[in-house]
C-alpha cells in the first residue's frame, strides 16, 4: 500500500509540473501584455514598451521567468498581477474559498438529490417513476448551464426580486449558482446511481438479504447502497475535479468572486502571473482529489491495492 501511494504521489507531482510548464509557455504565445497595458495611453513608442516589459520582467528568457514562478510557488509567493501589481497570493486567497464553497455546496446538493432519485428509478425499473426520472434527467442534461443560470436570474431576481442576481453576499447568494450546477450534475448522477444500483440489486447477497426477510428499505440502504459506494465515490470524486473547471461559466454569469472569474479576466488581460497561479492551484486541487480517490479506492477495495 505504501508503495502504491508513493508512486501515485510521484505521478501527481509530475502532472502538476507538466501543467504549469505548458500553461506558462502557452500564454506567452498569445500576445504582449505591455501593449495591453499601454493601450489608450496615447503615443506609445517601442522604447516605452521595452520599459514596461522590463518593469514586468518580461524581457528575461522564458525559462528564467518560469523558474522564478516555480521557486516562488515553493515559498508561497505567487508574484504580482500585471494589472496594478496586486499580490496574486492575496487574490487567490480570496478566490479559492469562494470557488471551493460553491463547488462543494453544488456537489453536496446533487448527491443528496441524485441518490434517492436514482434508487427510486432502479427499484421501480420500467414503471412510470423510472420513466419520469429518466426523462427529467434527459431534460437536465440538455440545458446549457449558462442558459439555465440566466433563466433563474430572470425569474428569481428580476421578476420576483427574491434572490440577488450576482455577487457573494452570504448564504442567500449560493442558491442560484449552486442550484444551476446541481441541476446539471444531478442529471448525470441520477443515471449513474440508477445503473449502479440495478447491477447491485442483481447480485446474490441482495437475494440472500431478501431471503432473510429483511425489509426492503434495509436491503436497499444497508446492503445494496454500501456496495454501490465504490464506483460512486470514485465518480463523485472525479466529478469534483471537472466541476472546478466547469464552474468558470457559472462564476462569470453570477459575478462570483472565485478562481473562474479570476482566470477569465487574467486571460483577457494577458495577466500571466494570475493565470499561472490559478491554473497551478486548480491542477494541484484536481490532482490531489484524484490521488485521494485512488487511495480511498484502494482502501475500499483490497483487490486494487494488491495489483
Amino acid at each position: 500500500m505504501a508503495k502504491f501511494i508513493f508512486y501515485r504521489i510521484l505521478q501527481a507531482i509530475f502532472v502538476v509540473f507538466a501543467v504549469t510548464l505548458t500553461v506558462s509557455f502557452a500564454i506567452r504565445l498569445t500576445g504582449d501584455p505591455a501593449i495591453m497595458l499601454s493601450q489608450g495611453a496615447g503615443s506609445i513608442t517601442e522604447a516605452d514598451l521595452e520599459r514596461i516589459r522590463e518593469a514586468l520582467g518580461l524581457n528575461r528568457p522564458f525559462l528564467v521567468q518560469y523558474w522564478d514562478f516555480v521557486s516562488g510557488v515553493f515559498v508561497g509567493d505567487f508574484g504580482r498581477s500585471f494589472m496594478g501589481g496586486t499580490s496574486v497570493g492575496a487574490l487567490i486567497a480570496r478566490a479559492l474559498p469562494a470557488t471551493l464553497m460553491l463547488a462543494l455546496v453544488s456537489l453536496f446538493l446533487s448527491i443528496v438529490i441524485s441518490i434517492p432519485l436514482g434508487i427510486t428509478a432502479a427499484v421501480s425499473r420500467g414503471k412510470w417513476a423510472d420513466q419520469a426520472i429518466r426523462i427529467l434527467s434527459l431534460v437536465g442534461l440538455s440545458f446549457p448551464n449558462f442558459w439555465l443560470a440566466i433563466m433563474l436570474v430572470l425569474v428569481f431576481s428580476i421578476t420576483f426580486r427574491l434572490l440577488p442576481p450576482s455577487g457573494m453576499e452570504g448564504p442567500i447568494s449560493f442558491i442560484m449558482p449552486a442550484a444551476t450546477m446541481a441541476i446539471i450534475l444531478t442529471a448525470t448522477n441520477v443515471r449513474l446511481v440508477r445503473t449502479t444500483m440495478l447491477e447491485t440489486l442483481r447480485s446474490q447477497y441482495v437475494m440472500v438479504a431478501r431471503a432473510k426477510g429483511l425489509s426492503e428499505t434495509k436491503v436497499l440502504y444497508k446492503h445494496a447502497l454500501r456496495n454501490c459506494a465504490i464506483p460512486l465515490v470514485t465518480y463523485f470524486g472525479l466529478q469534483f475535479g471537472g466541476l472546478l473547471g466547469g464552474i468558470v461559466v457559472i462564476e462569470r454569469v453570477f459575478n462570483w468572486p472565485g478562481l473562474g472569474t479570476l482566470a477569465f479576466e487574467a486571460v483577457a488581460a494577458r495577466d500571466y502571473p494570475v493565470l499561472q497561479a490559478v491554473i497551478t492551484v486548480l491542477s494541484l486541487l484536481i490532482v490531489s482529489i484524484n490521488l485521494l480517490v485512488d487511495i480511498a479506492y484502494g482502501l475500499l477495495d483490497p483487490r486494487i491495492r494488491t495489483e
Binding site: 430572470l154 440577488p164 462569470r252
Partner: peptide, 15 residues
C-alpha cells in the same frame, strides 16, 4: 461586473 447580462440584471433587480 464584467458580464453585460449580469450588470443589466443587477440594474433590473434595483441593486
Amino acid at each position: 461586473i464584467t458580464e453585460p447580462s449580469t450588470a443589466v440584471a443587477e440594474l433590473q433587480a434595483g441593486r
